[in-house]
Amino acid sequence: MGYPNKIDYTGMYFMRNKHTLDIICGLSMKNRWAMITDNANKCGKSGSIDKAYDVFQSVASPNIITHTSMINAFGLNGMGFEAVNLYKQISIDQCNDITHICVLNACSHSGLLNQARIIFNNIHIKTEKIITTMIDCLSRLFLFDEAERLIDDFEKSNQPNIVMYMALLSGARNHGNIQLSEKIYNRIKSLFPDEKECLISGAILLSNVYSSRGEFELGRDIRYRHINKLKHKVKVGLSWTEVNGELV
């Protein structure tokens, strides 16, 4: 949860008063970068994207961490084009896994399929997390065949990854595709029989597909049958919100 009116803009002051703060606080350059990045993250997560960009622009020579933080802030606020444009200003050789993941996530949440494909195809070393992020992007846009091909290609030389399948199942749930959801969930049960928490989450997603199609009793039956069969205690969800300046 973010509180825009309480955000500390010390990071901007750091960059404009380096020598003074070095003497007073003894901060290293590494710590200054960390403080600035933290402030940009706070602004982005609280929805104060203009303030996040002010923090970013206050940096004379942004490094890859600062760029990545701003790309992520754009993505969190549905500003996919801005995230992609900033990403393009960075040399591909400077980018790390987190940079690639943040921009692909930004594309995913803004529906920028072509941009996501171009970025993904240009990444020289596609790690497991980068591939998973692209699968999530394709699944959110209901491009299940393409997402499954990525999984198949990955598994030719790697062990199956449950997060990839959960992303695919989540997309199938959003699409209301009962047949595909059943297929994916059965595949998850076959590949990951000991991942009880993920299996319960998958059962709930599958149940939601049926409920979204009006099959409420069947959805309820699937949910409780799978949870009871797994004999695993379901964690109770908990959330907080702010009312009249107080957390409740």
Rank of each mutant, 00 (worst) to 15 (best):
T37I: 09
T37A: 15
T37C: 11
T37Q: 12
D38H: 11
N39W: 05
N39L: 05
N39C: 15
A40R: 03
N41E: 05
N41I: 03
N41S: 08
N41Y: 09
N41Q: 08
K42Q: 14
K42F: 06
K42V: 03
K42M: 09
C43L: 10
C43P: 05
C43K: 07
G44R: 04
K45E: 14
K45W: 12
K45L: 13
K45A: 13
S46P: 09
G47I: 11
G47A: 14
G47C: 09
G47P: 12
S48K: 11
S48E: 14
D50R: 12
D50L: 13
D50N: 14
D50W: 08
D50A: 11
D50C: 15
K51D: 10
K51L: 08
K51S: 08
A52L: 13
Y53R: 14
Y53I: 10
Y53D: 07
Y53H: 14
D54E: 15
D54W: 07
D54I: 08
V55S: 08
F56A: 02
F56T: 06
Q57E: 08
S58A: 10
V59T: 03
V59L: 01
V59M: 04
V59F: 00
A60S: 06
A60F: 00
A60P: 00
S61A: 14
S61D: 15
S61H: 15
P62D: 07
N63D: 15
N63Q: 06
I64G: 08
I64L: 12
I64K: 14
I65Y: 13
I65Q: 12
I65H: 11
T66E: 02
H67N: 12
H67R: 04
H67G: 03
T68K: 05
T68V: 03
T68Y: 06
T68G: 06
S69N: 05
S69G: 12
M70Y: 00
M70V: 01
M70F: 01
M70Q: 04
M70T: 00
I71G: 06
I71A: 01
N72M: 09
N72V: 12
N72L: 12
N72F: 12
A73Y: 08
A73Q: 04
A73P: 02
F74C: 10
F74M: 06
F74A: 04
G75S: 13
G75D: 14
L76Y: 15
L76Q: 15
N77E: 11
N77Q: 12
N77Y: 12
G78E: 05
G78Q: 09
